[in-house]
Write a protein that binds this DNA or RNA. Structure first.
Lengths: 141, 141
DNA sequence: CTGAATCCAGAAGGATACTG
DNA sequence: CAGTATCCTTCTGGATTCAG
């Protein structure tokens, strides 16, 4: 297996072709995952489904501010990636349940790692922003 | 401190207000981080700077396909977050070096966690995509 | 060399109305 | 209930030009 362009694994050791050719990031699983999760709603949906299964409108109500259109698109994206399972009960009226697949559940761990870092370094991040703001107002670039 | 809206920490245990009010994700460090990193280039720049410091044009050459404008914007974003340090050497012609701050370096760990997951589950993700493709061509929604 | 400024195209996301 | 379809606005990013 050749080394993907933007492979982030083993950050210090892995060799990267230089210059890094960026063909829309094709072939890099890491970038693929990031692009899948980096929209406005996927993370939140993933987290909610990590707690319990939801029906469509349940989920719609549970998230303040998402449009029906975006909820559908988000769920389809996660489903296509194999992270979410869509279960249709052929009742009248129809009922559709969404839940995480085992693969989706296994993602919650690494995701928590990143979340923990963000929470743990919230103060440092804020301090960095303050320094940046101060430097900006005092001197030009 | 109140619980941020989309706090992902301790995914199963943490209470979330329901419905989750999404006021542009303000106040959630996790979402803030995700939004910072979820653009087209930040991750790659972070990884490259994790290996060694780079000068501006060095970085520009190292990444195939990034525009000068986007490289500048990406670096400014990471700098504002306190992840990247910008060091100006007042020479002629000017020389500017970029490197990770300690905070930036500490982010590489959790990031690797996510990257490892992506690499480790590449096959499963591909299989999920195949199943999704098969289901799509066989039956309507 | 290291940018900033301007202009432009495409993608992402929201509002609304309609359907099986 | 669980979506689709359509229209519209905003945001992102690329190309190009100019400047210290």
């Amino acid at each position: 297996m050749s080394v993907p362009n933007t492979d982030v694994r083993s950050l210090v050791a892995t060799a990267l072709p230089m210059p890094v050719p960026v063909d829309e990031y094709d072939g890099c699983p890491v970038t693929g995952l990031l692009r899948l999760l980096s929209d406005k709603w996927s993370m939140l949906v993933l987290v909610l489904l990590g707690r319990q299964p939801y029906r469509f409108n349940e989920l719609h109500r549970a998230i303040g501010g998402i449009s029906q259109r975006m909820l559908t698109r988000t769920l389809r994206g996660l489903e296509s990636a194999g992270l979410v399972l869509r279960e249709v009960h052929p009742t009248v009226p129809p009922s559709v349940e969404y839940r995480l697949t085992p693969l989706g559940q296994s993602l919650l761990g690494p995701l928590s790692g990143l979340a923990d870092w963000a929470v743990g370094n919230e103060a440092a991040l804020a301090a960095g922003r303050r320094r940046a703001g101060a430097a900006e107002s005092s001197g030009p670039r």
